[in-house]
Nucleic acid binder design. Structure first.
Lengths: 221, 221
DNA sequence: ATGTGTGAATGGATTCACAGCG
DNA sequence: CGCTGTGAATCCATTCACACAT
């Protein structure tokens, strides 16, 4: 038990479910920070954003103790800490494979190219697109040059926005070129080495999950 | 214990995590179905798609017993069953609020408008877009007409692809007009009645989760 | 023999409850 | 006295292991 505790203190790994909440807390704190207060309690934060106060405290406690008893959490300091924990003090170069509607929409997504993320390249096999830029000025390269540009531009995250049948091959090429995190929008399960983090963001699959719940709601409530 | 079992048999609700896997199994089975075999065992399915055989069997067993011992699962029959369980035997009309890059990309997303889902409308406040159609022919209406069209078109799912500051108001209006499931792409937590299923699909938040893992990988592995 | 279906065991995550600090 | 930080209790999910159907 004591040993477990020590291990936990030194192991930088927390589950994905906690990570998702940390990102959410950060978003909420950035919002309340514009209002000028210096402190907020877990209870107030929970009430304002439909969160769970116990869970906020436990999640934050994994990374040290930085709340003031009787007062709450210093908003600025907690924002800094959360950014640090999530690794957002670094800058990540991101490339997108597939310059279709979705790929270009993601490339031009508002306010992504600030702070921690830089979308540095799009790749496509359509020669008519190659050599052009998106509205916000991101270059489209030919997919055959993926390895070359991923290395040259020091890309650490790859986004897959190509059709399902091409997804696995593109993922392999990203990883081979040094990418360490993949976000997969293709409706297709991809298999990668365990040291690569993969997040599935498949639109159709999410609609199906929604369908399950919507179909259970009786008509007329 | 016996009672629990009975309750479980009759309660149509399974956790979201199981639902996500059911959608995944469906996808995998549709893939193997094209190869012509009639049966597949949980073990083979697991090996081919990096899944867990025990988990497949347990997940499927929540909905009855439809595997053949010593043989495996009838692929066609299991596909039918999964579609039934997920509510995919119905058709869901879907509307998208926000006809920006993302909204139109989602509206024209390939192969969504088949089987279970119909994207029937986009809404935007930009009068230059109103009255036009997307590439695949989906109408863009003015956001002020949201209630009217949602009711008229019998929309059951709403997709939020508007800026963060408008997300909550749009979600409320969707729900008020009869929508029962919401997929939220805005970088903003929205609060809705508990009988409404909400799925968050916020791109930036997902990048942040990826950042956490990528930042933990030591350089040079 | 083979592979399902499922209780029992294990392992994680959430919630409770309260000691102790400010 | 209020609110954090955290063990303990509870709840849920995964994995194990095997009886039993084919």
């Amino acid at each position: 038990m004591r040993e477990d505790k020590e291990i936990k203190k030194h192991c930088p790994c927390v589950s994905e479910i906690v990570t998702r909440r940390l990102s959410l807390y950060l978003r909420c704190l950035l919002m309340v920070n514009r209002e000028g207060d210096a402190y907020i309690s877990s209870k107030e934060l929970a009430e304002r954003f439909h969160l769970n106060a116990d869970q906020i405290r436990k999640d934050l406690s994994y990374f040290g103790t930085f709340g003031k008893r009787g007062v709450g959490y210093n908003i600025e300091a907690t924002i800094v800490k959360l950014k640090e924990v999530l690794g957002l003090t670094q800058v990540y170069n991101v490339a997108i494979a597939g310059a279709g509607n979705l790929g270009t929409a993601l490339a031009d997504y508002p306010r992504i190219n600030r702070d921690s993320f830089r979308i540095v390249a799009l790749f496509d096999r359509d020669n008519r697109k190659v050599g052009t830029k998106t509205k916000t000025g991101i270059h489209i390269y030919h997919i055959s040059e993926l390895e070359e540009w991923v290395k040259k531009l020091n890309v650490r995250m790859g986004i897959i926005a190509v059709p399902a049948d091409a997804a696995q091959a593109i993922a392999d090429r990203f990883v081979e070129s040094g990418v360490r995190g993949i976000m997969n929008f293709a409706p297709m399960r991809i298999q990668l080495p365990s040291y690569i983090k993969t997040i599935s963001a498949d639109f159709k699959s999410q609609l199906e999950v929604l369908a399950y719940y919507v179909s259970k709601i009786k008509i007329g409530e």
